[in-house]
Design a protein around this nucleic acid. Structure first.
Length: 627
RNA sequence: CGGGGUGUAGCGCAGCUUGGUUAGCGCGCUUGACUGGGGGUCAAGAGGUCGCGAGUUCGAAUCUCGCCACCCCGACCA
């Protein structure tokens, strides 16, 4: 049955709600697709739900096509599962935790690795049952520190999550095979949804795992920065993006005597630059400054960590070895105009301390404990605490040139800092191995590609709509999932996991190039709430009869059809039609109808085309194919 | 969590500085008339715990304190 506008709920608004900033958010609100209930919580109105369902249908079809099996897992998850995998801490504040009447804690699932692993552990015993890929489309909860951009980052959202289990990495039935299948399924899904996308290498974050790729829709409103080599052979999220080799040296001569400069109230790079310009009348560029960040972390002592790994002793609880944990410190030094990449620092630190549990930017109090002057830190503080801190220097900071850096004294900086003279030569030989030059910063536009082929990285922004991971055995090990292999030996299956943010598909479709104009949304036909909107100039007489008959024919041909049966002036109907963005509009007016014709206009077209009424349904069906 | 800002009708806002009739305006909504191909015109209406709670005062949307919600910017993350 065709839908009549007057009988559904499409609250369009002329004015832009003040809270919305990005086009997808504004338009979904204005066009009556969603309605806000709270921060990061939205009602899906009939149009929004229809689009969401269409995206879900495409996802389901493509998952089924590659042999994934649908399940539905609970939202409410015993907190113990999250403690067993250590992810309660890793997810931290982003995990919603609710208490039941007995005071037991449950997590509202932000993702389902724990639950699926638990399920598979209890019903799969034999290697013969592998490989298997299970998926679901379900509401996820994440207590985002800052929900924003409407449906792009909300606290409750729809996610398709799939999980695969394998005996081996390669070969038939291996993780690699399924990973490829999912990868291809993702390509088909996003193509069918009409989304332009890039595939980039990604950091796996708290999900964990060895390798991962993200599917990104390029858009200036995207929250992720992606870098692509101009040679076309490398693309990565900035969190992951490696930077090609850069020459460096810590042995170069100084540019002058170390000189202390009074720079009151200037803890940041920009502050110092501004102070030099204003007060000292000297031009100082951020790239002539060294930025030193203090990281602190907790580690299981190396010997114990190695023992646990060697013996696969996952039963050792953190609580049991709490007293043995060691505090570790890293000083990360990058050029003033660069940003430290925490994931890279973490990788590096894990090489030093295999039992590292976490590493984060030291906060105020931690820094003060060590007598470090927050905001005025220089690399020289390694000398004050011999052997305590490791020093990690980005190659671009490991240069001989004019450097300004912190004075390690409130309100002071120093000029002419030199690595050899001011650090290395003053350092006990034993600790020189604690100084490392390594890529520890975020890549930026213009950096060399890691492919070492003279490629140059170019930065753009993107919206993450999908993410595939190779997980390895992490969850199987911590939740004790084993199967018997051919040799009757217990082994941990290898896992993969694959996620798609379904709501984001909608937002990304609007944010994409050509996804909207000054009048409203322009949907790809595959995920539009309706394929055709019939707009009779007046819903009465012959126009009404024609509208009803055509709608019936279109529905019979399998096209979702909406009739604007409201008693509104044509201008209002046209404006609303453009706003809600249905791919094809059929206008039925008196004049054309007198000649037995109706007007057909694609949403993105300027001009309508006249079509004979009795040919219209067929004609329209043909037009929708390529849209 | 830090910094900034906002809460007044369904939506967008004014009024608050300097307390004082019945709290306004535009859009939307209701009724009627005219109208009818890109957000019409006229007329008559309905709609408000001024975010919540205390306080100051003869009197509070307005001043004070506390709380709550939401938005923006940041270290971050789907």
């Amino acid at each position: 049955m065709p839908t009549k506008w007057s009988q559904t709920l499409i609250p369009t608004a002329r004015q832009v709600p003040s809270e919305a900033e990005v086009p997808s958010h504004q338009l979904m609100l204005r066009a009556g697709y969603i309605h806000k209930l709270g921060a990061g919580i939205y009602d899906y109105l009939p149009l929004g739900l229809r689009s969401l369902r269409k995206a879900m249908d495409i996802v389901r079809q493509e998952m089924d096509r590659v042999g994934a099996i649908e399940v539905m897992l609970p939202t409410l998850q015993p907190i113990e599962l999250w403690e067993q995998t250590g992810r309660r801490a890793a997810y931290g504040e982003n995990l919603f935790v609710v208490k039941d009447r007995h005071g037991r804690e449950q997590a509202l699932g932000p993702t389902h690795e724990e639950v699926i692993t638990h399920l598979v552990a209890s019903c799969i015993e034999s290697y013969r049952q592998l490989p298997v890929t299970l998926y679901q489309i379900q509401t996820k909860f994440r207590d985002e520190f800052r929900p924003r951009f409407g449906v792009l980052r909300s606290r409750e959202f729809q996610m398709k999550d799939a999980y695969s289990f394998h005996l081996s990495l390669d070969g038939p039935g291996g993780l690699e095979e399924t990973y490829q299948k999912q990868y291809e399924a993702y390509r088909r899904i996003f193509e069918r949804c009409g989304l332009p996308y890039e595939i980039v290498e990604a950091e796996s974050g708290p999900i964990g795992g060895s390798a991962s790729h993200e599917f990104m829709v390029p858009s200036p409103t995207g929250e992720d920065v992606i870098l692509k080599s101009d040679k076309g052979n490398y693309a990565a999220n900035v969190e992951k993006c490696e930077i090609g080799g850069r020459p460096h040296s810590l042995d170069g001569p100084s540019t002058g005597d170390l000189e202390k400069v009074h720079t009151p109230d200037s803890p940041g790079i920009d502050d110092v630059v501004a102070f030099f310009k204003k007060q000292l009348k000297t031009k100082l560029k951020p790239q002539n400054m060294l930025k030193t960040l203090v990281f602190t972390g907790l580690a299981v002592p190396n010997q114990l960590a190695e023992k646990i790994m060697r013996e696969h002793d996952w039963k050792t609880k953190l609580g049991d070895i709490k007293d043995q944990l060691v505090v570790q410190w890293v000083l990360a030094v990058v050029r003033g105009d660069h940003e430290v990449n925490e994931a890279k620092v973490l990788q590096l630190a894990k090489k030093w301390w295999p039992g590292l549990i976490k590493l984060e930017l030291a906060d105020d109090s931690a820094v003060r404990e060590q007598d470090i002057t927050f905001g005025y830190v220089s690399p020289r503080i390694v000398l004050d605490t011999p052997g305590l801190m490791r020093l990690a220097i980005d190659p671009d900071a490991a240069q001989e040139q004019f450097w300004v850096t912190g004075g390690d004294d409130e309100g002071y900086h120093v000029k002419h800092f030199n690595w050899k003279r001011d650090v290395l030569d003053l350092m006990d030989d034993r600790y020189k191995q604690h100084v490392t030059v390594a890529d520890i910063r975020n890549a930026t536009d213009g950096d060399p590609s890691p492919k070492a082929d003279c490629g140059v990285l170019q930065a753009t922004k993107g919206i993450e709509i999908g993410h595939v991971f190779k997980l390895g055995c992490k969850y199987a090990e911590s939740l004790n999932l084993t199967v018997l292999d051919e040799a009757n030996k217990r082994v941990y299956p290898i896992m993969g996991c694959y996620g798609i943010g379904v709501n984001r598909i909608l937002a990304a479709a609007i944010e994409r190039e050509g996804g909207n104009d000054e009048n409203g949304i322009i949907w790809p036909a595959s995920i539009a709430p309706y394929s055709v909107l019939i707009t009779p100039i007046k819903y009465e007489g012959a126009m009404r009869d024609t509208a009803d008959r055509l709608a019936g024919e279109l529905e019979a041909a399998g096209l979702d059809t909406l009739i604007d049966d409201r008693d509104e002036r044509p201008g209002v109907k046209f404006k609303d039609a453009d706003l809600i963005g249905i791919p094809l509009r059929v206008t039925i007016g008196e004049k054309a109808l007198a000649n037995g014709q109706v007007e057909v206009k694609p949403r993105h077209a300027k001009q309508a085309e006249l079509v004979a009424v009795d040919q219209a349904a067929k004609h329209i069906a043909g037009m929708l194919q390529p849209l």
